[in-house]
Simulated scan of single mutants.
Amino acid sequence: MTEYNLYCDESCHLERDNSNVMVLGALILPEDKKEEVKDRIVDIKAKHGVSAHVEVKWTKASEPKIGLYTDLVDYFFDDDDMRFRVLVADKTHLRHEDYNQSHNDWYYKMYFTMLNRLFDSSNTYNVYLDVKDTHSAQRAAKLNEICANSHYDFDHKCIKKIQPIRSDEVQMMQIVDVINGAVCRANRTDIKPPAGAKREIIWRIQNRSKLKLTQSTTPGARKFNLFAWTGGHA
């Protein structure tokens, strides 16, 4: 039995935020490797003159710091202990009324869809969600209930906890933010393609993953698993 930590983040999750997609992503690594990964991220930051306390974010990507971002991407792909699962949901044809659901209901369905494939009853899991607003604790509790009920894990022996954390306080969340941001931007058709540092980061992830980032991988893809949800059943 292995205990895993899942570090989760989201991009463009609001119903009317002018983005054609929502992206939900999770970095998966063994719990006993978290200190090693954290220290390595801090070392990469130091190499580029960035304090451990500075949050690396997709929105802050710029040419002067492109080496920092590509080094973080390379570290993820070079480390066999880390995996990534990402769901890209098309928001252009949502029909919540047809399914008698709110946007929040759909959001939880998508989060469950992203996470569910990662759970194996022979292991245990700690799931950490990036704090977004004052409703983060409520969202975590609801998602915990949905996942536990689906797996008959009423005693939380498999899914030990789902809790919100601050991304600026957890180094691993910053890798999630960068990869999520890149995948989201690669799938945005409502705005012009990115240029400069953001384009380079997307290219780096595409090159290392050998994926376009706009199509689903095979369901069993392990290192980098992408599911492109296009609607029709939720």
Rank of each mutant, 00 (worst) to 15 (best):
D177T: 07
K210G: 08
K142E: 14
I146W: 01
C12H: 14
I146K: 06
V23C: 10
A46H: 03
A182N: 08
V73A: 02
T134K: 07
Q174R: 08
P193F: 07
K38Y: 05
L87H: 02
K38G: 10
I44K: 06
S136W: 04
K132W: 06
D130H: 07
L24E: 11
R185D: 15
K109L: 00
D17K: 00
E145R: 12
D79G: 02
I165F: 12
S102K: 02
R208K: 11
R117P: 04
V131N: 09
A61I: 11
D81K: 11
L6M: 12
K210C: 10
H135T: 15
V176A: 15
G49R: 01
N144Q: 15
N144S: 15
I41G: 02
V86E: 05
M82C: 05
P194M: 09
D190K: 01
N123S: 05
I66P: 00
N180K: 04
T113F: 03
P30F: 03
G181K: 04
R166T: 13
S150F: 12
A137D: 14
A140S: 15
K57Y: 04
S102N: 02
N144T: 14
N207F: 01
L129G: 12
K198S: 10
H103I: 00
D153P: 12
E97T: 02
M172C: 14
V131R: 11
M1Q: 11
K210I: 10
H93P: 04
V88R: 12
T214K: 06
L211P: 02
A228F: 04
S62P: 04
L115M: 13
L211Y: 01
F119E: 02
S167T: 03
I159W: 10
D71G: 01
K34R: 14
A140K: 14
D177F: 04
Y75P: 09
F119L: 12
T113Q: 06
L24K: 08
G231F: 03
I44V: 06
W203A: 14
N116R: 09
F77E: 08
S167N: 07
L6N: 10
E63D: 14
Q101N: 03
D39C: 03
S19N: 12
K91S: 02
V37W: 07
K212S: 13
K60A: 14
D80K: 05
N207S: 08
L87R: 05
K198W: 09
V56E: 13
D32P: 05
I202G: 03
A137W: 07
I162L: 15
L143S: 07
S136C: 11
K161H: 07
S136N: 11
I179L: 12
V86Q: 06
M172P: 13
K47W: 00
A148T: 15
L143F: 07
